[in-house]
């Protein structure tokens, strides 16, 4: 069903990029939230990083793991940062 899946772009950084093996992934997903999307990716791409340590950005803004996803969203899962 067209309205049950959405087309999103996922970008990976740092440890997640290494685990995913790619920097960018365009995917059609039934996930309604980043939390659901991450569970799909854990199963599909072998991501091992624990979800409870992640933050997420949607369209270059910090969001929550429960923010509803829409087609065209750019989703970035953000592992604990280490700037400075």
């Amino acid at each position: 069903m067209a309205d049950s899946t959405r087309q999103v772009q996922v970008k990976f950084f740092a440890v997640l990029r290494e685990q995913a093996g790619v920097s960018t992934l365009d995917c059609a997903t039934a996930a309604r939230t980043p939390a659901e999307l991450y569970r799909e990716l854990q199963a599909g791409r072998g991501l091992q990083f624990p979800a409870d340590l992640l933050r997420v950005a949607i369209n270059e803004r910090y969001a929550t793991m429960e923010t509803p996803l829409s087609t065209g969203d750019r989703v970035v899962f953000i592992p604990p940062v280490a700037g400075g």
Binding site: A14, A57, Y62, V76, I78, P79, V81, A82, G83, G84
Partner: peptide, 11 residues
């Protein structure tokens, strides 16, 4: 704040 929230990682 940079150490807390800037999306930068170091290896």
């Amino acid at each position: 704040e940079i150490k807390r929230r800037l999306p930068v990682w170091k290896k």
